[in-house]
Design a binder for these strands. Structure first.
Lengths: 346, 346
DNA sequence: CTGTTAGCGCATTCAC
DNA sequence: GTGAATGCGCTAACAG
């Protein structure tokens, strides 16, 4: 951004003061029509573009909101951004991105990097405790915390526990008698909640206090490994609840290779409802999390607390995942006609 | 960002001048150890976080790069961001995001919004001409243009034409004699190039100067529609090249519903290699575009032109898509073991 | 080594 | 209506 034309150049060219140029350009009422015309013409001629950094220093408004997300991996990230952006874009706001690998120190760095450059913050940091955020979030900066509370902050979270219980209930309702779970990373809060929901569900509904758990990492390969392991030592399992769709799909693949019929011999439920879930064979029953909606909601709540600063936050908003019934738990279903889909190529 | 503690507060608390505080905090050599300690202590006690907006106004460096992308849709966007971010993050740089819907006016707005807030720009704007960018890109701002040239700018592009020709060649090599193409949106540059590559390939390799073209929009539903239409009036087609994977997968679904055997009666090739391609049944042969790599490369080139301003750009870098052979064009392949995969849940 | 002065580019008092 | 002066928060150039 080297020597570009500033408002001073415009003012000089139009033969007016900087203050007048500023007023003319920003559409204030108290400017003579003639002067405004001259200033605008000069700006056009000089190809003037206001320096937003300087403007925000002076107005104390940046016109951008900061987004701190964990890893930039997979569907979750892009859906979240899309939701936030679609709402922010409508208000003419920009997004300043910062990611970190769950690491607390990195989160702190990301948070600090936002200072003086954003009007508000949307933070999702699944691997740090609530007190950490409460401590490191600048007091005066409006913020919304996604999936992870913070004292005195506006929060919005996916109810992974409820979703997991619903998934288990569905499997049992469909006739499963012995369940297994493919768990996500142990240090991930959502993975923990899903595991907990599975455990409680299995105990309550099947009286099984020691269900089979495979340790996964949310990647498809770990689902495949779990599937292979399960096939070798079936132990009467007839229903699997995977911590997310990617692992479910990987597991389905392993089962197919081993000739296990789904849903005939084994039923499968995933979590998230990523696009792949619809196109897997058999199509995957899953707990849909409308991520983009969460992003949009997060933005709306942020917007509200920016406009009414100092207000105590509303209670935490919990989003309950919705069961999407597909072939992997239902023999009657043969095909699946998704309505909302996604392109990719530019 | 209301009344937060500034460097003046720190200086006052430590009993030194603002300049000294700044020097101490920024690790300059010429500061007495005692003073530095006092300043740092004061900063810690006051929980001081530097105002980056103010800093960049003074240093003329923002520590962030701007990213202007088309729609925030699907895999492409997130992969691109991921590639850019992973490289930028290593350098401690942030990303300022701006999207637009191909609209030229929106692109201009997005570009203007970057002024004074970024050290460089990565722009992808498939629906505006090269001259548009050349005109609206601030002269002095380093920039890299992805998939769409601009005079005197560093460019990097997917060679969609070459990819399409390779796809057609592959189909023909596998024995296809009569081809059809499902085209992407007519106003999309990549879609056009893929269509052109298909036409040329069909003409050169099969002597077919009037191959069947279905108009799609890069979404899976349009692929499904094309598949249905094709089934109704087969016209001897035995090979389909889809403009992207989503349409290919949609089409595969329609073919499956109609009982058309793939690859037995009909072969299919997609474009992009999104995660779904591996898990579709049959798994989809496709032209892989390593999008994240492109993002990373774009950043590297940007970095270079930031460090050596004024240098004329190197010639446009063309990325050739790679053929990924899967079951949809090969009866011998039964399963597919992807190595690199993606999670999703946080 | 340290404090004082000036300025980044802009919006906004406050006088005229 | 318009211009001159002031300050946003910080760093850099200049004295001391």
């Amino acid at each position: 951004m080297a020597a570009a034309t500033t408002i001073r150049d415009v003012a000089r060219a139009a033969g007016v003061s900087v203050a007048s140029a500023s007023r003319a350009l920003n559409g204030h009422r108290n400017v003579a029509d003639a002067m405004r015309a001259r200033v605008k013409e000069a700006a056009r001629a000089l190809d003037y573009v206001p320096h937003l950094g300087a403007r925000s220093l002076s107005t104390r408004q940046t016109g951008t909101i900061g987004v701190v997300l964990p890893d930039l991996f997979g569907e979750f990230f892009s859906e979240m951004i899309r939701g936030i952006d679609s709402a922010a874009h409508r208000q003419g706001l920009q997004l300043l991105l910062s990611n970190m690998h769950g690491d607390a120190r990195e989160t702190e760095v990301a948070l600090r990097a936002m200072r003086g450059r954003v009007d508000g913050l949307i933070v999702m940091s699944p691997n740090v405790g609530p007190d950490f955020l409460a401590r490191h979030l600048p007091e005066a900066l409006p913020a919304v915390v996604v999936n992870g509370g913070a004292e005195g902050r506006s929060c919005i979270a996916v109810d992974s526990y409820a979703g997991a219980r619903a998934a288990v209930a569905h499997l049992v309702e469909r006739g499963a008698r012995k369940l297994a779970h493919i768990a996500g990373p142990a240090d991930n809060a959502d993975a923990q909640e899903r595991l907990r929901g599975f455990r409680d569900g299995a105990a309550d509904l099947l009286g099984d206090d020691d269900p089979i758990i495979f340790q996964g990492d949310f990647q498809d390969e770990s689902g495949r490994a779990a599937g292979t392991a399960l096939v070798e030592r079936r132990r009467g399992v007839d229903g699997i609840f995977a911590g997310n769709d990617m692992m479910a799909v990987g597991c389905l693949d392993a089962l197919a290779d081993a000739g296990v019929a789904v849903p005939g011999e084994m039923m499968m439920v995933g979590f998230d409802d990523v696009p792949i879930a619809r196109y897997a064979r058999p199509a995957l029953t899953t707990m849909r999390v409308a991520i983009a909606d969460i992003g949009r909601r997060a933005f709306e709540r942020l917007q509200a607390s920016i406009e009414a600063p100092g207000q105590p936050p509303e209670p935490t908003e919990r989003v309950i995942p919705e069961l999407i019934l597909r072939a992997s738990t239902d023999r009657a279903i043969t095909s699946d006609r998704p309505s909302r889909t996604q392109g990719r190529t530019p």
